[in-house]
Lab assay of single mutants.
Amino acid sequence: MDVFMKGLSKAKEGVVAAAEKTKQGVAEAAGKTKEGVLYVGSKTKEGVVHGVATVAEKTKEQVTNVGGAVVTGVTAVAQKTVEGAGSIAAATGFVKKDQLGKNEEGAPQEGILEDMPVDPDNEAYEMPSEEGYQDYEPEA
């Protein structure tokens, strides 16, 4: 019985440690998101679009440190934060509304985080759909 109880105690310690790591990862992701939003706020009209992409990228980098179902929630929060940063930029006159959601080359930025393969159960990952990809044929 002692062996059984000791095993359960060790398992509990492992769960607590994993929860603490997840909590730490979420806190880091939130900190990076805040950094990115402050970065966007300090940019001029020309830099705002690039700044919004930076927020998304920093958040995406930190999301990889967070495991399990938390990833889905962090990704949703990050996307809403990026959308909010863009709205703030438009409201303050840093950028025109028609410039939001495009990178410096004018290509749409939507789907940055949505296409990231995420499995809350950590069982399997699927690649994003290939609808947006084109076949590449090298020139002879």
Score class of each variant (00 low, 15 high):
1 M>R: 00
1 M>Y: 01
1 M>C: 00
2 D>V: 00
4 F>A: 00
9 S>Y: 13
12 K>E: 00
14 G>M: 15
15 V>Y: 14
17 A>P: 00
19 A>H: 05
20 E>Q: 08
21 K>T: 04
22 T>G: 04
23 K>I: 02
24 Q>T: 12
26 V>P: 00
27 A>D: 01
28 E>Q: 09
28 E>I: 05
29 A>G: 02
30 A>G: 01
30 A>D: 00
33 T>G: 03
34 K>S: 01
35 E>L: 06
35 E>V: 05
36 G>Q: 15
37 V>E: 00
37 V>S: 01
39 Y>D: 01
39 Y>F: 09
39 Y>E: 02
40 V>M: 06
41 G>F: 10
41 G>E: 01
44 T>E: 00
45 K>D: 00
47 G>Q: 13
47 G>L: 12
48 V>M: 15
49 V>M: 15
49 V>S: 12
50 H>Q: 13
51 G>E: 01
51 G>R: 08
54 T>A: 11
60 K>M: 15
63 V>S: 02
64 T>R: 08
65 N>E: 08
65 N>L: 07
66 V>R: 04
66 V>F: 14
68 G>H: 12
68 G>A: 11
69 A>K: 08
69 A>W: 14
70 V>I: 14
70 V>W: 14
73 G>C: 14
74 V>Q: 01
74 V>P: 01
75 T>C: 10
76 A>G: 05
78 A>K: 04
80 K>G: 04
80 K>I: 06
81 T>W: 05
83 E>W: 10
84 G>A: 15
84 G>N: 11
84 G>L: 11
87 S>H: 12
87 S>W: 15
88 I>P: 02
89 A>N: 03
91 A>E: 05
91 A>Q: 07
92 T>F: 15
93 G>P: 05
93 G>E: 05
94 F>Y: 09
94 F>T: 05
94 F>I: 06
96 K>M: 13
97 K>G: 09
98 D>H: 09
98 D>E: 10
104 E>Y: 04
105 E>Y: 09
105 E>I: 01
105 E>C: 03
107 A>M: 09
107 A>K: 11
107 A>D: 15
107 A>Y: 09
108 P>A: 04
110 E>Q: 05
110 E>K: 05
112 I>H: 10
115 D>V: 10
115 D>R: 04
116 M>K: 06
116 M>Y: 06
116 M>E: 14
118 V>K: 11
118 V>G: 13
118 V>Y: 10
120 P>E: 08
122 N>W: 07
122 N>V: 11
124 A>I: 02
124 A>M: 11
125 Y>P: 09
125 Y>N: 11
126 E>M: 09
126 E>K: 11
129 S>P: 10
130 E>K: 12
131 E>G: 04
131 E>C: 12
132 G>F: 13
132 G>T: 13
133 Y>S: 03
135 D>R: 06
135 D>A: 03
137 E>A: 07
138 P>R: 06
138 P>H: 05
139 E>P: 05
139 E>K: 09
139 E>S: 11
140 A>K: 11
140 A>I: 07
140 A>G: 10
140 A>W: 11
